[in-house]
Design a protein around this nucleic acid. Structure first.
Lengths: 246, 246
DNA sequence: CGATCCTAACTTGTATGGTAGTATGGATCA
DNA sequence: TGATCCATACTACCATACAAGTTAGGATCG
């Protein structure tokens, strides 16, 4: 059909699009997942008409999904020109990390003085499951369990709302995290950091819990350069390397 | 025309709706301003058709504005039922305050070690203007200058992006701040807090600057109960006073 | 051969029509 | 008098049509 450049072959692979829910949010989630898992790569153009055809719906819900993706900073809508997946930029990743660290450290600080044995047990159960996922090298499962771990912390502190506002910001980091499965951060190390956080919480050591969380969340700062070096085509072009051009 | 309950008489008062920009964001900003300044009050219903008529546009851009308002937590879209301005809830205000404090304290902490004389001068200039606004009891001008003060801090720390992500969250607090003009927090006190922050920054006292910012941002926590008592109709009904329900 | 202009095929933005679902008010019946 | 049922008038959501603008490519002219 389209003689244009690389178009994603199939976005609606695992997209049954139930009718019990509005279409627009379903399309949004499907596209976000496709972007975060890099099935559609930075720089690629997304056409409302094209995506609508793939999902078998009209342009309207697709358009609304595009707007939400743009607010999350995953695509850029250029009026009358096109919509494009934005490249990963160190600037955006670092900014997302900064915001996430500020909020999650504050959450863990509050939680240290109001933690309950039930919560500690729940967190330890999640860590056990993470060890199981690591043992079978199931990276997607670990990502989901990691997400559950941090969300449980936020909800335990009564800050579930804060976690929800964090989600669009986290999306900026998720593409990098998805690339980390190549082994940038060994899973046992991440899991041990989780364990250290829970240990400090169990002993109600506020400063210790905050420091442990900070160390954990700064892991991405050390892995980012390696990932960028490994996949330069996914990142924005380097500022100015004097000896590269055509 | 409409025999329904109280409809806002005129939303398009100061809404020329320039053609050089897309309509949807303009409608969004106009509606947000109307909600934040309480020209449309909590509980009030907003109809796509009605608003579209008032602005002289179609329903589509109005719908997109509604979606963005819903993401900011200012309205609630109930499918096939209607869109309603959500009441102010202590829970949401407290949550917004929590997130804002976490981020702004982190920003001021970073800024303490990288501040410049030019930035300090700029901040002091803003404080002078705030004193002038206070002297003439110009509350809207003070609100704008307060916003500029905090934004300048964030941009000075190289965290302008963080400030932008904070904006939709701040909207939750803005309705309360708008009500504060009745004198909940005396302006000189707020300005002195600003001055204390800048003073700590100028002396590069990181802990002091963080503490001063924390004190400043927690001001709303003390004024909130009074404002709620003064305008109970703008807030959600009280949770459960033990002597009312079954 | 080279630069310029113009046409045609895209893009997003907006307007309008139609559909499914919900709330409301009045008529009907016990 | 009271409760129940039903028709009507809303609502948000989706589909489709149109408009405004941009870009790419080919024809034309120098």
């Amino acid at each position: 059909m389209s003689a244009k450049a690389a178009r994603s072959a199939s976005l609606s692979d695992a997209a049954p699009l139930t009718l019990s829910e509005a279409i627009a949010p379903q399309v949004f989630r499907a596209l976000r997942a496709a972007i975060v898992t890099l099935r559609v790569q930075p720089g690629q153009g997304l056409s409302e008409t094209d995506i609508a055809r793939q999902f078998g719906v009209s342009r309207q819900p697709v358009r609304e999904a595009f707007i939400k993706l743009a607010e999350a900073g995953l695509v850029e809508i250029r009026p009358q020109r096109g919509t494009f997946v934005v490249p990963i930029t160190s600037r955006d990743v670092l900014n997302a990390q900064f915001i996430r660290e500020a909020i999650e450290v504050a959450v863990i600080g509050e939680l240290a003085s109001r933690t309950t044995p039930a919560l500690i047990a729940e967190l330890r159960r999640l860590i056990d499951e993470q060890r199981a996922a690591a043992a079978s090298d199931d990276w997607p499962a670990f990502l989901a369990l990691d997400e559950a771990f941090h969300r449980t912390l936020a909800e335990g502190a009564g800050r579930g709302q804060a976690w929800r506002t964090l989600e669009p910001i986290k999306a900026q980091m998720d593409r990098v995290r998805y690339l980390s499965f190549s082994g940038a951060s060994p899973l046992p190390q991440l899991i041990n950091q989780h364990a250290a956080i829970v240990e400090a919480l169990a002993r109600r050591k506020r400063a210790g819990a905050e420091a442990a969380m900070r160390r954990h969340l700064r892991e991405i700062l050390t892995t980012l350069p390696a990932i960028r070096a490994e996949h330069p085509e996914l990142f924005e072009p380097q500022h100015r390397s004097p000896a590269t051009a055509a």
